[in-house]
Design a protein around this nucleic acid. Structure first.
Lengths: 341, 341
DNA sequence: CGTCATTCTGTTATCGATAACATTCACCCA
DNA sequence: TGGGTGAATGTTATCGATAACAGAATGACG
């Protein structure tokens, strides 16, 4: 009789339950004034018909989509994955749904994604980093919804930012090396123009060395982001080829640090006795490998969680309490401390 | 005059350009018959007003959402992240948008996510694994859209599946160990009821040992998924405590294998001379660490890409060509081959 | 028993686009 | 020159829910 493939609508439920669609609409939401008997009757009718709310229609009618658009450089990066997990966990009982896109470290791709996402009318937008194409920035500014830039501290945020200074974090590591007595210190990675966070780290590294009156030319490129373990390996070879007397090396991430250390182990170079090596990001690997790896903990998951709270607060109107999360800290481990067995 | 915060609609564009909304609608899509002059006029008007298409309204009117719902156990797992990358890449010029949810290895959470996603009226649904709650299975069956179960080969797929047999893959590794002359072989992980793929691997492992007439009791639990490097470490300790004469160990993933190997290195146990250790999943780490780690390559990214193609084909109607991708293969490396320096 | 406050339910208009069909227009060829 | 053809554009109805307001039912209380 009826088209069997057609899904039931609220009207069908209303008819079966003998009420109006408006009552059905209310009955299926919490915190609405519907008689308990009526509500149960409607629930039963919905169950019987296999009714599933059509969010699209609901969004359209109410002008609320429940979407939060999120862009990250890469899914396949433990740091961003952790942030995303924190974000996701923080949003879980807000009913908000993440629209995820990854930019592959490209600003053009970011622009494309944002443009696409805006059509879905998200209620908030979260982007990674504070550097965007001009057009992308304009789109975000005109979006009319909260925009959060995370993993960075842009000088002129579009709206709000939740992150840390990558440059300052790198400077911390320089200080750590210097405290260990090193003066000839190199940096691996962070050269690609696409990886703005890597660039910031490198910039902070160089700046701090200069401040301390140390030479800052030991910089090795590691290819385009994301920098892999293997590239870390290759980069260390270049570092030692060019500057064999290098005492310490900071890598743009723990992954490249692990690659660099693996090269050393394989070729009988002792870490940290012959050369100290540190990473960035506090990946799992850095606390398990032999030697364990000195790194910078940036609280990736906490960033995501803070962003989620911020978004929730902004949308609910009570955006009073300022978001707080820990600043990056050095986790000193065997790879720079000279107690490796 | 007009509410300044209100975004322009197609009607506004139509009025400015002096055409009907229908013409605007067509002009903003490719492959539609609109005069070139008109199209340009409309483009200009849209640009001038800062018009952004309202996908919600469009979806609602056309009954097409462009959503593909995807659930994975964890974002923070390189294998699934790769699959997601492949999936995402494969969908990039289909205009389809992924709705991502992670189940945290819980079937109940999966059910909750699916229920939520169905309200968005996705055009296809992709889930990880072939094991679901009864209700979840029913929801998927009644969804009326293509359902793809990936990373597994369920005996009775809901609709279609794209994956491999985790049990068979584990059996391959047993054969590899046996070929190396080992007979006392253990397995770490895969015991948690939530990790169905881990369970399958363990099951396949035990089955193959039994087939070969070897003992199959060396099984160590590694806690709930995801199994971390540290848990791999702890599990190896238990393994050697219980069965000190174990010659070879298969771990449920490369991460736990790396943890186990790290424990060995730290305590002077030679890998593979004293004990051979293998992982699963062909993570980056397995080809960089010292020793490099024997593993099973399951083509995680290719799975995602194949799923994307399958989805695209199903939706476009020409679902002729069967999807193919490589079966899991053993990548034999130093950790089991006895050539580690 | 009547009045008022409160809770519950219904009515009507509407969100912004697209589908389906109708129409106009330009151009070609017999 | 008339009819045919196909491209370009317009008209009308509609998707499925919710907002806003209106009305009915219920119960408390003097």
């Amino acid at each position: 009789m009826d088209n069997p493939r057609k899904q039931p609508t609220m009207m069908d439920v209303a008819q079966l339950a003998g009420v109006s669609t408006m009552t059905v609409s209310r009955a299926l939401k919490p915190n609405t004034s519907v008689g308990e008997k009526t509500r149960q009757k409607i629930r039963d009718a919905a169950e019987q018909l296999g009714y599933v709310l059509n969010s699209n229609a609901a969004n359209f009618a109410s002008h609320k989509t429940g979407f939060v658009a999120v862009t990250i450089p890469s899914i396949n990066n433990a740091n961003f994955a952790e942030t995303l997990t924190g974000l996701s966990d923080g949003l879980i009982d807000t009913g908000l749904q993440i629209l995820l896109g990854y930019t592959n470290y490209s600003k053009d791709e970011e622009e494309r994604l944002i443009e696409q996402f805006l059509q879905r009318r998200p209620e908030a937008i979260v982007v990674t980093g504070g550097s965007h194409t001009e057009r992308c920035r304009r789109l975000l500014e005109n979006s009319g919804v909260p925009v959060i830039e995370m993993w960075d501290q842009p000088k002129e945020p579009i709206d709000e930012s939740i992150g840390f200074s990558n440059a300052d974090a790198a400077a911390l590591m320089v200080d750590h090396f210097v405290a260990q007595g090193h003066t000839r210190i190199g940096f691996i990675g962070g050269d690609a123009t696409r990886d703005t966070r890597g660039l910031d780290r490198r910039r902070g590294f160089v700046a701090r060395l200069n401040e301390l009156g140390l030479e800052s030319h030991r910089l090795v490129s590691a290819g385009s982001p994301p920098v892999t373990m293997r590239e870390g390996m290759d980069s260390l070879v270049k570092m030692l080829d060019n500057w064999p007397d290098t005492q310490a090396v900071m890598c743009v991430s723990d992954l490249s640090a692990f690659g660099a250390i693996s090269h050393c182990i394989r070729h009988g170079i002792k870490v940290p006795d012959d050369i100290a090596i540190a990473g960035f990001g506090a990946y799992d690997i850095s606390e398990v490998s032999v030697p364990t790896i000195t790194t910078v903990d940036v609280s990736a998951k906490a960033i995501g969680f803070a962003v989620a709270q911020k978004v929730a607060n902004r949308l609910s109107g009570n955006d009073s309490k300022p978001m707080k999360f820990d600043h990056p800290i050095i986790i000193a481990r065997e790879s720079t401390l000279g107690c490796a067995k």
